[in-house]
Nucleic acid binder design. Structure first.
Lengths: 337, 337
DNA sequence: CTTGGCACTCGGGAACACAGAGTGCTAGAC
DNA sequence: GTCTAGCACTCTGTGTTCCCGAGTGCCAAG
């Protein structure tokens, strides 16, 4: 049904349309790419491609434009991820290397990716899921309040102020801290709930109410912050592009963590480090946009996802190259720290 | 030069233009507001106002539009800050009351303000400047690396990983921690540099290199993070409005911390809790936008600034009311925690 | 299967007219 | 002196028409 030449025509259409943003006609196609056939032949092929739903024409007697299905075929079979230039690689490396803490890594990453792709970049904070507890700290604020700080091996810090049910002095706080650390140090966050389940019973009776309160806050922190935080950058890059769905919708989605999360996609599939590309209507919300995303994290310990969001008419090979490269470098940085 | 009626005309022009987004003519003006004079009289007044530079006409034979100078006069003399409705007040209170930590307070505040004003809201994180040290924590990661955590009385937490020049064991870390805390606990951040100046000399010689490294990171943290962090929300509200300067420029400015900082204005003036309004060309960058901002913080301990950014054609009384109210509630929340 | 030719179809831009809103000015009324 | 009514004038925005050209689909010939 689709011989090699038809595929070549489709590829040419996608490439031309992406670079010119104008429907591409048979004549221009036959000229610019050396297809070695006449425009008429190209027209026949285009008619076939349109029949199959890979391309469409905005109005009669305009050139053709790829459909979502056309982009899909292009991404899956007709294109290769384009590696970055040496200069770009070095720029990434030096830019990310300057980060001082986890927040900084994430902020730099998202900006870098936005600048590199000239699209909107989205980065999910590393989830607590596979992290391990590095340290638990209890800081007495006054006799009824304690600040609870949880530090993980990924450099993430969570803090909460806990209101205690009754006054408690510093030595008992210190005792609690020691017990907590002895119990949790180095343990995976997902195993924390089991580990602390019987903790109050192992304490002196007078410490139990305070311990129970602190533990409930601890568990709450683990649940609530679970892969929730997402940041984006490069919204200015949206200004030029035109979306079928309004610009407003896109901006709203970007500020809605939940939607953004859904868009980035679940990392639970078999090969989380593979590039995911969702094109136009394949997206749950925001039909008019495409998303290129991938998991990142140190080694096989997959932590979270990052990617870019842009118009369906996007340079997929370049974008995929940038996303993949940035994900690798960030993973490297995180593994080192 | 400007009698009462001319001022009333100016006020009417601003109000009408803000609500309709169309140049307002003499006839409509005389009708809608009961000025009790004929359109011809209004026209004479408008001519005078234009002469003085308060209004202008986009083209001959279109209605008049306020100039920046016109808005300025309106804000300064012709309008009153509009208080919020009871329902709005309650909504603010309940929404902010649910915050669990400082991050959460800031995030909720910026979203609330964006929703309330239907503009872009901008909130600066409370500066470390007037905060005091609540606790310093050193967590050994391995024998050459320590995580350094600084907790302030405003609930802010700063952390850094420090590479030590030489291996150091846990007991020495604990000693350093105790010394640091004894030295700094409860002190204002601005006085930290003096307090730690001679600290290494008071330690055992073998601890000095490690201490010096940690202290340099501590000082660096204080300087770098100094009122740097700013967040915004409500970018989607820009989608409708049209700016003289492109939408792209506004979005770029929003992602540029430094520019945003300049726009929010310095809090160093005499009465930081007063509302600041910068209209159009009064802004350092971004000529086409207006900014309504104010300081917030607990009591006379001014912490940082927040505000909204929108088109010059903005409902100033309502916006100012919302900004003022939110600032007050946030201050209250921060004082309580 | 490919190619050249040809009639057909639209979209988009240029030219044009026109209605309507708004103004400035002048002369008269209070 | 101040306000009002009337009037001529000047625009912009819109709707209409027209035409060019790009691009197509189809057909017949190579």
């Amino acid at each position: 049904m689709l011989d090699d030449r038809k595929l070549a025509v489709l590829r040419a259409i996608v490439e031309d349309y992406v670079s010119t943003n104008e429907p591409v006609g048979s004549k221009a196609l036959a000229e610019r790419h050396n297809l070695k056939v006449s425009p008429a032949t190209v027209r026949n092929d285009m008619a076939a491609l349109e029949e199959e739903g890979y391309i469409t024409q905005p109005h009669t007697s305009a050139g053709r434009v790829p459909t979502d299905k056309g982009y899909r075929l292009f991404v899956d079979r007709l294109s290769q991820v384009k590696p970055l230039s040496g200069a770009e690689r070095r720029a990434i490396e030096t830019f990310l290397a300057g980060a001082v803490d986890l927040d900084d890594v994430v902020t730099r990453t998202v900006r870098l990716l936005a600048q590199l792709t000239r699209q909107v970049a989205v980065v999910q904070y590393p989830t607590l899921n596979r992290s391990t507890v590095r340290h638990v700290e209890l800081v007495p604020l006054n006799d009824r309040r304690v600040m609870f700080v949880l530090i993980t091996n990924t450099g993430r810090v969570e803090q909460r102020v806990v209101e205690l049910p009754e006054a408690i002095d510093d030595t008992r706080i210190a005792h609690l801290r020691a017990v907590l650390n002895a119990c949790l140090d180095g343990c995976g966050l997902s195993s924390v709930p089991e580990l602390v389940a019987d903790l109050p019973e192992r304490l002196a009776p007078e410490d139990r109410p305070a311990a129970a309160t602190i533990l409930s806050v601890l568990l709450e922190t683990l649940v609530e912050r679970h892969d929730e935080k997402i940041v984006f950058a490069g919204a200015a890059n949206l200004a030029g592009a035109d979306f079928t769905t309004g610009l407003r919708d896109v901006l709203e989605a970007l500020e809605e963590q939940v939607v953004l999360m859904r868009l980035l996609g679940e990392t639970t599939n078999d090969t989380p480090s593979a590039l995911t590309v969702r094109i136009g209507s394949e997206n749950p919300y925001l039909r008019g946009t495409s998303i290129v995303a991938t998991g990142y994290g140190s080694g096989d310990n997959q932590l979270a996802r990052l990617g870019v969001l842009g118009p369906t008419r996007m340079d997929y090979p370049v974008t995929m190259g940038a996303v993949r490269a940035v994900a690798r470098y960030v993973s490297q940085i995180l593994a080192a720290s």
